[in-house]
Design a protein around this nucleic acid. Structure first.
Lengths: 208, 208
DNA sequence: TCCGATTGAATGAACCATCATTCACTAAAT
DNA sequence: ATTTAGTGAATGATGGTTCATTCAATCGGA
């Protein structure tokens, strides 16, 4: 079970391959990336990759799960430092945007390939990604208990909205080479929108 | 210029192919869809596709531009019926969610392939998609003039946030076969969040 | 210490299935 | 008869995967 390469554990070579894959996948996308390119980038032979990964798909999945796992563990720790739900929401948002700088390649792969993957990996469930979303749910539910957020807020929907907003802004950032805005400022603006949006309510049969 | 098939204009056969492509692309994704499958689905021979489209990429791009063009024109008309910025925002959001039902396949293709396309079509700029985003900007700017939305709102960021939220929720809807929520209700919840979020502000050094 | 044997990681050329694309041909229309 | 739409089998390129072989490290007997 869970045997995954010559040494069995997390070898340096395995990690070199994973890093190379992030680099190549993020540049060209999964389908346009060749195993031989990844091998070259990692400084190993084509065949070596198959000592550590079952096939090309497995390489992508391992990348999703392992790297995303690190990200999730990291955010959890950071968010735990926050006080009330509002400040924790802010930390979460801020952290997400900071990831763009720290882990640009990884984020780029996740953003583009995670969607695609549903189409060609029928069996795969992105566990770690769901955990990431659960962190948001947790904050929202706590906020309701604390009386900060609306009680009738649909948490499932709201967490998706928050993630979607962050994701889309990250995407725009990553794609435009111009870097039109600063991630930290963006985080603050997004925080303001949601902090106000989750808190108060607006007449349901609104404007004219 | 813009010659694109035997009849030159929008033939019925051309449209059959486009519709078949939406169907197949939405099921398997661009790279896993075979021209021969699309041909079979459309009831034409493989070669016929090349009478109407330059190549596989061109088929995808045409699909983006033409179908998205129809969508944009349609939303523009609907939004124009609204009164103030708030009610127009609500119409826009509601319309987006309704599209999920009316144009499920198309939406699915756009959501998944638009991101990918940046990686392998270096020259392609998704004009119609940007127009869609511009509709949101327009609403937001009007809202500022009307004194409904914060003057210091970063419109570029906010429109991305709104689109991102909608897009992510649509994605969840499309992917989960369970249909956990109703698009109309989802639209209302999203509207409430943003209506409140764009309007009021929250102390910038919040929390604690 | 030295040397042959054994082990398993690493290699990369070759294999072969998969499609996108082409084009010689047929059918229909004018 | 000539032109144009449509066909679908054949072609050629591509690239994931395999596996026979090489190489280095470790081991044990003298």
């Amino acid at each position: 079970m869970a045997r995954r390469g010559p040494q069995g554990g997390g070898g340096a070579k395995r990690d070199r391959i994973l890093r190379a894959a992030i680099m190549i996948f993020s540049r060209k996308g999964y389908f346009n990336s060749k195993i031989s390119e990844i091998a070259r980038q990692a400084g190993v032979a084509d065949g070596t990759i198959y000592l550590y990964f079952k096939n090309k798909d497995d390489l992508l999945i391992s990348l999703f799960e392992e790297k995303m796992g690190e990200v999730v563990a990291d955010v959890r720790a950071r968010v735990a430092e926050g006080g009330d739900a509002l400040s924790r929401l802010r930390i979460f948002i801020r952290n997400h945007m900071d990831l763009l700088v720290r882990e640009a390649g990884l984020i780029e792969v996740l953003q583009v390939e995670l969607r695609q993957s549903n189409k060609f990996m029928k069996e795969y469930v992105p566990v770690k990604f769901l955990e990431y979303l659960d962190i948001i749910s947790g904050i929202l539910e706590d906020g309701q208990k604390e009386g900060i957020f609306r009680r009738d807020l649909n948490v499932t929907l709201a967490r998706r909205a928050i993630f979607g907003a962050l994701d889309e802004i990250s995407l725009a950032y990553v794609l435009s080479r111009k870097r039109k805005y600063d991630p930290a400022e963006a985080a603050e603006e997004i925080y303001r929108i949601f902090a106000a949006g989750l808190k108060d309510s607006v007449p349901s049969e609104g404007g004219r």
